[in-house]
Structure formats: C-alpha cells, structure tokens
Amino acid sequence: MTNALQRLNPLRPEGIALLLLAAFLGRAIWWFAVSDARDTSFATEIIISGLLAGVMYSLVALGFVLIFKSSGIFNYSQGVMALFAGLFASGFMTDFGLSPFIAIPLTMVVMVITAILIERFVLQYLVGQEPIILFMATIGLAYVMEGIGDLVWGSDVKRLDVGLPSGASDFMFDCCNLYVEKLEVSAAVVAAVLVAALMAFTQYTRIGRALRAVADDHQAALSVGISLRTIWVIVWSIAGFVALTAGVMWGAKSGVQFSLSLIALKALPVLMIGGFTSIPGAIIGGLIIGVGEKVAEIYLGPTMADLFGANPNNFTAIENWFAYVLALVVLLFRPQGLFGEKIIERV
C-alpha cells in the first residue's frame, strides 16, 4: 500500500490537480460559449454573488491570519468576536439611540478593552504552551464572550442598520441585466479597503514592522526590544477591528444573532485553502470558497441527477460541508494551502 502510494509520487499530484482544474475551466468556458443568454447571465449572477459572499468569509479569515501569524495562536473565538462586536454595535444604536458614527467607534473601544483583558488574564499566562492548549483556551474565550454578549444584550435576533445601501443595484441591472445586491457590493468594497489598509499598515508603519518581526521570531523580536505583550494587545485589537467590520457587515445582512459566531467555522476552510499564514491567501481562499459553494449549491444536484440518476433534492443545503470538502481536496495536493509557507520539517 505504502509502496503503491510512493510510486504515485513521480506523477506530481500538483500537476494532476492543475490538469483537472484546466479541464474543468475549459468545460465551463465552453458551456458559457454554447449556452443561451438566460442561462449564462444566471450563472454570472451566481458567480458574482459567490465572489461577494467570499469577500465576507475573507473578512473573518483575515482576523484568524493576523493572530496566527503574530502569535501562533489558532484563534477559534474570531467568529464570536464578530458576534460580540455586532451585539455591542447594535446595542449601542438601538438601546441608546446613538448614530452609527458614535456607536461603531464606541464598539471599537470595547474591542480594545477586550483585547487588553484577554492579554492580561489569559495569554500572559499561556506563553510557550503547546498550540493545542492555546487553541482550547480560545474556545474557552469564545464561550465567555458569547455568554457575556448574551447577558448584556439578550439573546434575541437584533437588527443592525448602519445606513449601508441595500436592494438591487440599478446600474448592474441596466447595463448587464444582472441582479446584484447593493449591500454585498458595499461589503466587498469595505473589505477591500480594509485589506489594503492592513497591508499598508504592516508594510509601512513602525508598529507594522514590529508585528512582522514578532511573527518571524518571538525571541529575536524580544531581544531587539519589542514588547511582546504590547504587540499582542495591538494584534488582538486589530483582530477586534476586523471582527467589528465583519460583525457589522454580516449583522446588516442577516441580523445580529448567535449563528453569526458560526461563520468562524466557515472561515476555517478558507484558511486551509489559503494557508494559515498568508493574508492574500485568506482573500483568494475566501473567493474560491464563496464561488465554489454557490455554484455547487445550484449545480451539484442536477449534475448528480444527470450522472448517477440520484435525487437532486438530496443535494441541497450542502453549504455546511462543501467548503470543508473543497478545502480537503486542495490540501491533499498542497498540504500547506495555496499560499502557506512551505512546511519544512527537521528531525
């Protein structure tokens, strides 16, 4: 069995994957060329809405990557942080009647305080522990934050209206006859701005350089005088900011509720595809998952029915697992994800 697997290696699994991908893309392009306009514009709509949904996934994945890069912590609580921020933002706005321009900075203050508390009471004591212990600690954190959020603001679904445009985009409808949700477009724009800002921040500012130094090597960073604790507070605050953006965007789309914390689970396959340490990876991974999921949701059932005569209704609601299986397939060919650092193991 092992020998057979080893003999397969010269065939270069990545090469096989590329060939398959090329064949699939060729087939898709061929389909676009021969199908009639109604089908293709429907498919385009699906792909666009998949891309926009993918941007939302990337937003959450980004928070993961930031923390994983700078501290090696696999932060499970990122999704709950988004929920937490969303709860506070909507709470400030509805219960205190604040305008979004005050409520959102106020929520940011809450997130910074949370970051400081997390560092002060949790991370400080767990330096140098095994990754799984840190991972479990963030699950504990997720529980605490979820409970506190519910205790303070109640657990019913809240509306969050920050004045983003909604409804169908007239422009896209007029020019290309496509239905595109305005809210999703604005979310995509916000996400793009956020990513650009984060990239600029880590590349060109003093703190950004310190962040990258810590990400490279904790001890070396300490020895040149970078305070690890300050950096961690900053990283968790930035992750809080990303979570706030994600929380507001998802909250505006579907209301602030517990299921918001589950988008963290959606961000995990995104991370796996992109690689845990790559910011561009998080974006590309998000887009791949977003499109793949939407396309599969629509076309997998009919395809299965055509190929195997299966009941197409059985292949609905696949969005829970499809992303994982997609990620699994990618990982089989590239174990470190598409953009992750090559895993080098020494004995």
């Binding site: 991972f135 995990l268 845990f276 697992w321 990982l331 994800g337």
Partner: peptide, 23 residues
C-alpha cells in the same frame, strides 16, 4: 488525509467529517 495533512490543518479537515456526516 492525516497521512498528508498535519496539525491544525488536520483538525479543520476532521470538521469536514463532522459536517458531512451529520448532513
């Protein structure tokens, strides 16, 4: 997959089992 995937990547990959099986 554990033969090729390790660590947290594997942990996330096992989530595929969780969601796929219940679905």
């Amino acid at each position: 997959p554990s033969l090729r995937i390790k660590g947290f990547y594997l942990a996330v990959a096992t989530l595929a089992a969780q969601f796929f099986l219940t679905w």
